[in-house]
């Protein structure tokens, strides 16, 4: 210290070099405290529940776990969940790409309204989303009489579950792609057209490759939500065992019957899905962050 003072005195033009001071002025202790709080919080509210699920699921041994998963109602629930996701995800994939395309690349009236509408499912409670379908398609609903006349059942049947799931997972793909496509503009497509490519060819060879990682990412999240959705599906399902129960609903029924092992065993499937989703998501974000986030151009 005194050394530096002497030096500074000898060479007044040279200012003593200081270690780069952090812009953030919190002291070490405060920093560690904040980090510790965050970690404890995460452990308590995220990790502990996850562990509980696993521990509970295997508490009666592997046999009980396997039995819970292979029981016919559980298999039916699993099959239904996969079916619903297999319909809802591709539907929202196509819709999302079309909507994002229209919004990002064309100018038209009512564009802002469309953007707002796409957001709607995120802003209403899932229960309300479910109720909307009951009010429209239920026996007392708007189209109820007509549907009964034509012997079509939507509410308390698979179509209702699919519709509710589609509604709830509507925004995932579109919201992810709109900023991405807006940022990319139409220049490359125009180049493709001048080179003789048809619009269709340009879409497959230029537009889609440019959004592929963002698309994959959003489909992943959309799928996780579609398989895990509870609220909206619960309203329209009717909870008919083996017929209209999805995995989340099945978990709840088992739990209400105090069948904890089976309940947690089935729940562990959802937890597993969440973990897999999380891992793939992290890998995507790490590897292709520039392609996923709009605004970060690579050239």
């Amino acid at each position: 210290m005194s050394d530096r003072v002497v030096n500074a005195g000898l060479q007044p033009s040279v200012t003593p070099v200081r270690p780069p001071a952090s812009v953030v002025t919190e002291q070490r202790g405060v920093r560690w405290l904040l980090i510790a709080i965050a970690i404890v919080f995460l452990a308590l509210f995220l990790l502990l529940p996850l562990l509980t699920v696993i521990v509970e699921a295997f508490s009666k041994g592997l046999g009980a776990y396997a039995a819970a998963l292979t029981e016919p109602d559980a298999v039916a629930a699993l099959r239904l969940t996969l079916t619903v996701a297999a319909i809802a995800v591709p539907f929202n994939l196509v819709f999302g790409v079309v909507a994002a395309w229209a919004i990002a690349k064309f100018e038209f009236r009512g564009k802002n309204l469309l953007i707002t509408l796409i957001d709607l499912p995120f802003s209403v409670s899932p229960v309300v989303s479910g109720l909307i379908y009951v009010l429209v398609f239920g026996t007392q609903g708007l189209l109820g009489p007509w549907l009964i006349d034509h012997n079509i059942q939507i509410i308390f049947a698979v179509p209702g579950i699919v519709l509710a799931t589609i509604f709830v997972t509507f925004p995932f793909v579109a919201r992810q792609l709109i900023p991405l496509m807006q940022e990319q503009g139409t220049l490359e497509e125009e180049a493709a057209l001048t080179l003789g490519a048809s619009g269709w060819h340009a879409f497959w060879t230029v537009t889609l490759p440019n959004i592929r990682w963002g698309l994959f990412y959003s489909v992943l999240l959309c799928n996780a939500r579609a398989m895990g959705e509870f609220g909206a599906v619960s309203v329209v399902s009717g909870h008919i065992r083996g017929l209209t129960n999805t995995i989340p609903l099945h978990v709840e029924i088992l739990y209400n019957e105090y069948n904890f092992v089976a309940s947690f065993a089935v729940a562990s499937l959802l937890a597993g899905l969440a973990l897999v989703t999380l891992v793939i998501k992290s890998v995507l974000e790490w590897r292709y962050s520039a392609d996923i986030a709009a605004g970060a151009r690579r050239h």
Partner: peptide
């Protein structure tokens, strides 16, 4: 339509296909 005009267009910002 553009495709049938057989023009070669070079854009100011290249517009190369980056993938």
């Amino acid at each position: 339509p553009v495709q049938q005009r057989a023009v070669g267009f070079v854009f100011q910002h290249y517009a190369l296909f980056k993938h």
